[in-house]
Simulated assay, not measured.
Amino acid sequence: MSHAPLNDNALAQLFTEARTFNRFSDRPVSDETIRQLHENLKWGPTSMNTQPARFVFVRSAEAKAKLIPTLSPGNQEKTQAAPLTVIVAWDTRFFDELPTQFRAYDAKPLFEGNADLAQATAFRNSTLQGAYLILAARALGLDSGAMSGFDADKLNAAFFPDGKWKANFLINIGYGDPAGNYPRGPRLAFEDVVRVI
């Protein structure tokens, strides 16, 4: 494996020219592409290899009909029109997988006996995994629009009634239509956000 820096085109696709999209073309996202998204994002690191994220790819009209009423009004139309919406969730029992996924020592009791630690770990690391999904989508030539405007209780009741999974945030995915973009917002300067000590 090469550890050379990515070229400017790759960096532009992943970061410097990538945008959050509010509108997408009607081109569908294939099952093969969904599998490739997961294949790529799953290699992103999580603490103790916990991998708490669970992904629900909402594509069918029936699934969209369940999702749309749980969204804030400003997110409904664009989500209805997006070819794919991913519910990034976290598994409240992620630690059941640790015996096979983290073999350094038996870490399951650490989380099973501490609900606060388990929730903090699951939420933090599922958020990381959602970010990996965004980068995996960009790497495959897809665009995305992450959202947090939804009623978590309603969404969890609609999609996760047994309570084992909990919604973290949502990502619309597809092939972006730049006509729906707002002007790109600025970013804070290095001096405003970085300390090297």
Results as ranks from 00 to 15, higher is better:
N114H: 01
K108C: 08
D116F: 01
I34H: 08
N22G: 12
V56S: 12
L98W: 07
R19P: 11
R59L: 11
T50Q: 09
A82L: 05
N40R: 11
D153R: 11
P52H: 14
F21S: 04
Q101T: 14
L110T: 14
A63Y: 00
A122V: 13
M147P: 03
F95S: 10
R27H: 13
L117H: 06
R54A: 12
L67N: 00
A18N: 03
A18F: 06
R35I: 07
N49E: 04
A61D: 12
R23H: 06
A81W: 05
I34Y: 09
P99I: 12
L142S: 09
L128E: 11
P83N: 03
P73G: 08
T100Q: 10
M48L: 13
T100R: 12
V56A: 13
F160Y: 15
R138M: 07
G44M: 10
Q36R: 10
Y132D: 10
A63H: 00
G149R: 00
A81P: 03
A81D: 10
A104N: 05
Q129S: 14
D26R: 07
A82I: 03
A65Q: 09
W43E: 04
D143E: 13
F111M: 05
A137D: 00
G44I: 10
E77L: 07
F111H: 04
K42A: 09
P52S: 13
L98P: 04
S144M: 08
S60D: 10
L71F: 00
R124N: 15
I134G: 03
A115S: 14
V58F: 08
G163T: 04
K108I: 06
K64T: 01
E62S: 04
R138F: 07
S148L: 09
S72A: 07
L67T: 01
I87C: 06
S72R: 01
R27K: 15
Y105H: 10
P45F: 03
G149Q: 00
L133R: 05
L128P: 09
E112S: 12
T100S: 10
T50K: 07
V88F: 13
Q129E: 15
T70L: 00
T121L: 10
A61C: 06
P45K: 02
A136F: 04
N49F: 05
K108D: 04
L37F: 03
F102Q: 12
N156G: 06
D143V: 13
L41N: 09
E112I: 07
A146K: 02
F160I: 13
F24I: 08
G130M: 09
L110Q: 12
F24Y: 14
T127F: 11
S47T: 09
V29H: 09
L84Y: 05
H38A: 11
